[in-house]
C-alpha cells in the first residue's frame, strides 16, 4: 500500500514538476506580459534539442547544459520581446487588441522556430540515455534521471519564488502583474520588466526542455503538446498567479498519475476534464483573483 502510494505520489510530482516549470514560464509571459505565447512549446523544443546536441556531440552533461543555456534562453526571450512585442504593445490601442495581435505574432514565431528546427535537426526522432539507472525509495522504484529532473524543477521553482518575493525586480514583476498602469506611475520601467518577464519565460521553457530531453525522446514538432499542457495549468492555477501555476502543475501531474494507475486510457481525458471543470466552476482558476 505504501509502495503504491509512493509510486503514485512521487511519479506524479515528477511529471508535475516539469509541468509546473513550463506553466510558470507561460504564466510570466501571459499573466504579466499579456502575450499568449503559443510558441512557448517551441522554446521547450529548442531547449530539448540544445540538450541533446550538447550531450551527443560534445558529451556535455545536460546538467551543465542547464547552466550554459539558461542565460542564452533568457537573452533570446528578452530580445524577442524588445524587438517584437514591445513594438506591438506600443502600437496597440487597448490591452485586448494587444492580446489578439500578440497571439498572431507568436503563432508566426511558432512556425518560424519549428521550421528552422526542422531544417537544422531534420524530423528524425532523437534521444539519449543519461543517468537512467533505477533508484529505490522505500521499495518504490524510479529512474534516476526523473528524480534529478524533479529536483531541478523544484529547485528552479523555489529559486524563482524567492526571486519574485524578495528581489526588487521580482517585486516590480508582481506589481506589474497586479496593475501595470499604477506600477508604471510608481516608477517601474514597465517595458524593461515585461522584457525580463518574457526572457524568464523563455528561460523556463529552455530549462524544462533540457530536462525533458533527459527523459523522453524528442522531435521538432513536440512543442505544441507542451504549450497545451501549459495553458491547462495556467487556467487551473489562475491567470497571472505564478504561485497558482506552480501548484497547478503539481496538481495536474498528480491527478494524471492517479488516473493512469486506475486506467491509463483515461489520463488524457482527465486533463481535459479538469480544464473544462475549472472553466465552468471557477473560471478565474484556483488562485485567480
Amino acid at each position: 500500500m505504501l509502495v503504491t502510494f509512493l509510486d503514485i505520489a512521487i511519479g506524479g510530482l515528477i511529471t508535475g514538476g516539469i509541468y509546473a516549470l513550463i506553466a510558470v514560464g507561460l504564466s510570466l509571459q501571459y499573466g504579466v506580459g499579456r502575450v499568449l505565447n503559443v510558441s512557448h512549446g517551441e522554446f521547450i523544443m529548442v531547449g530539448a534539442f540544445a540538450g541533446w546536441s550538447l550531450y551527443t556531440i560534445w558529451g556535455i552533461s545536460p546538467l551543465v547544459s542547464l547552466v550554459i543555456c539558461s542565460p542564452i534562453f533568457f537573452l533570446i526571450g528578452f530580445f524577442v520581446h524588445i524587438t517584437l512585442f514591445r513594438y506591438l504593445r506600443s502600437r496597440s490601442k487597448s490591452v485586448e487588441a494587444f492580446i489578439d495581435s500578440s497571439l498572431l505574432v507568436s503563432f508566426g514565431l511558432l512556425f518560424i522556430v519549428q521550421n528552422i528546427a526542422l531544417i537544422t535537426w531534420k524530423a528524425d526522432i532523437r534521444g539519449y540515455s543519461y543517468w537512467d539507472t533505477s533508484v529505490t525509495i522505500l521499495e518504490a522504484v524510479f529512474s534516476l534521471n526523473r528524480l534529478v529532473a524533479l529536483f531541478f524543477a523544484v529547485a528552479m521553482s523555489g529559486a524563482f519564488y524567492l526571486f519574485l518575493t524578495h528581489s526588487r525586480v521580482g517585486k516590480a514583476i508582481r506589481a506589474s502583474a497586479e496593475d501595470p498602469v499604477t506600477a508604471q506611475v510608481m516608477g517601474v520601467n514597465i517595458n524593461r520588466v515585461l522584457g525580463i518577464c518574457f526572457g524568464l519565460g523563455a528561460l523556463m521553457a529552455g530549462f524544462s526542455g533540457i530536462l525533458i530531453s533527459m527523459i523522453y525522446e524528442i522531435q521538432p514538432n513536440m512543442g505544441l503538446e507542451y504549450t497545451l499542457i501549459a495553458i491547462i495549468v495556467v487556467a487551473l492555477g489562475g491567470l497571472g498567479s505564478i504561485t497558482g501555476s506552480l501548484i497547478g502543475g503539481f496538481i495536474l501531474g498528480l491527478i494524471g498519475n492517479i488516473v493512469t494507475y486506475v486506467d491509463p486510457g483515461l489520463s488524457l481525458v482527465a486533463y481535459y476534464m479538469i480544464f473544462i471543470l475549472v472553466l465552468l466552476v471557477r473560471p478565474k482558476g484556483i488562485f485567480g483573483k
Binding site: 509510486d7 503514485i8 511519479g11 515528477i14 511529471t15 524510479f142 523522453y216 503538446e225 494524471g256 498519475n257 493512469t260 494507475y261 491509463p264 489520463s267 488524457l268
Partner: peptide, 8 residues
C-alpha cells in the same frame, strides 16, 4: 501521447 507509463 502518454507521458508516464510507469504506473502501468
Amino acid at each position: 501521447g502518454a507521458k508516464d507509463l510507469s504506473p502501468l
